[in-house]
Amino acid sequence: MMHQISGFGRRAVIHDTGAELQSLRGGDGAELLWQGDPQWWSGRSPVLFPIVGRAKDDHLTVAGEPVVMAQHGFARRQTFRVIEAAEHHVLHELTASDATLAAYPRRFRLRIEHRLTAEGLSIGAEVLNTDARALPFGLGFHPAFQWPLPGAEGAPHVINLGTGAEPLQNPLSGGLLRRDRTASPFTQGRLALEADLFRNDALVFSEGAGEALSYGPETGPQLRFRFENLPLIAFWTRPGAPFLCIEPWHGAAAWTDGGAALEDRPGTITLQPGETAGFAVHIDLQDFDAGRGAMGR
C-alpha cells in the first residue's frame, strides 16, 4: 500500500514494503527521486537493515550462530505496519517475525518515519532491542536521485562536502570492503561527478566525510543533506545510468580479509536489551520550490 504525504508545497509517497520512499517532489512539482527503471536498477530508496552491504557468500554469524543473509539485509523486502499516518508524516514499524528470526536470530523493533518540514524531507529510523540478548546490526539509507536533477539537464553535477574535507576511499572488491584506503577523489570537498568514477562499484568513505553535503549543478538547483548518527557515506550508480545514490550508513560490507561475525563488520552497532539507537537523513528541498528551480538561481 502507498501513502502520500504533503505539506509546504511538497509531496512524497511511501510504500509499506520496506517503508520505502517512492516519490519526492519539490514545490515546483518536479520528480527528484529515481523511479526504479529495472533496466538499470529497480530500487528507489531502500532502508538497509540489519546489515549494510554484502557478507562473503551471503553467510555471517550472530554471536557465533551461522545465518544466511543477502546484501543489505531483509528489511527492504518486508511489509511494515503503519503506526501513524497524517498529512505531513507517516510512521512505519517492523518487528521480528518467524521469517526474520530464521535469518537473524534476534528480536527487534525498527521504526521508519518520513516527515515533510518547512525545509524539505526528514527520514528517521529508530532501532529498539526487544531481545534478551545483545543486538548487533548495521543500518543505512540508500536513496537514489535523478542525475541530472530536474532543471539541470546538460549541466555537470558535483558533490560538495560541508567540511571541505578530502576523505580517503575504501575500495570494494567483490562487494566486500578492503582495509587499505586510496587517494581521495575530492579536492577541497568537491567531487565532479562522472560515470567513470563508478566503473569499479560504489565510492565508499568509512570516515572523514562529515555530516553534510550538497548535490547538483554548481550554478543551479541543489539538494542539501544533513545526517545524524550516520558516519559512513557511499555514492553509487551503474555507469551511464541516470541516477545517483547518496548513501549514509552506520555499518558497511564485511572486510575482504575478515571473518563472518556481524559483530566484526565495520560500523556495526550493538545494543543491549532495552536500548535504542536513532538515525536520520534531512533533505533540504528549498531550491526546488516553485519559481526557484531554474538554472542559475
Score class of each variant (00 low, 15 high):
228 E>W: 13
214 S>G: 11
205 F>C: 05
221 P>H: 04
209 A>V: 13
203 L>E: 10
234 A>H: 02
202 A>E: 01
198 F>V: 00
218 E>K: 00
208 G>A: 09
233 I>V: 15
207 E>D: 14
238 R>A: 12
213 L>Y: 07
217 P>E: 03
229 N>W: 11
221 P>G: 07
225 F>W: 05
220 G>R: 00
238 R>C: 11
214 S>I: 07
212 A>V: 13
217 P>H: 05
215 Y>V: 01
199 R>N: 14
223 L>K: 03
232 L>G: 07
225 F>R: 06
225 F>N: 09
226 R>K: 08
211 E>Y: 06
209 A>T: 14
221 P>M: 08
217 P>F: 00
233 I>L: 15
221 P>D: 05
224 R>G: 02
213 L>D: 02
201 D>G: 05
201 D>F: 06
206 S>T: 13
232 L>V: 11
214 S>A: 14
205 F>T: 08
214 S>P: 06
210 G>L: 03
200 N>K: 15
223 L>D: 13
224 R>N: 06
229 N>G: 04
208 G>T: 04
200 N>S: 13
200 N>W: 09
217 P>Q: 00
235 F>N: 03
205 F>E: 05
229 N>M: 12
214 S>Y: 10
215 Y>C: 04
203 L>H: 01
214 S>L: 11
223 L>P: 06
228 E>F: 15
213 L>Q: 03
229 N>Y: 05
235 F>V: 03
222 Q>R: 09
236 W>K: 00
238 R>V: 06
213 L>N: 05
232 L>T: 12
229 N>V: 01
203 L>S: 08
201 D>Q: 00
238 R>D: 11
208 G>E: 06
199 R>G: 10
236 W>A: 09
203 L>P: 02
219 T>V: 12
227 F>V: 07
204 V>Y: 04
210 G>F: 05
222 Q>S: 08
237 T>E: 09
216 G>F: 04
236 W>E: 09
227 F>N: 02
211 E>I: 04
224 R>F: 14
229 N>H: 12
200 N>M: 11
216 G>N: 08
210 G>S: 02
205 F>P: 02
203 L>A: 09
230 L>I: 05
225 F>E: 04
214 S>R: 08
216 G>H: 05
232 L>K: 11
238 R>E: 15
214 S>V: 10
204 V>C: 13
238 R>Q: 12
209 A>S: 14
198 F>N: 00
218 E>N: 06
222 Q>I: 04
207 E>C: 06
231 P>I: 01
233 I>G: 14
203 L>N: 00
213 L>S: 06
200 N>C: 13
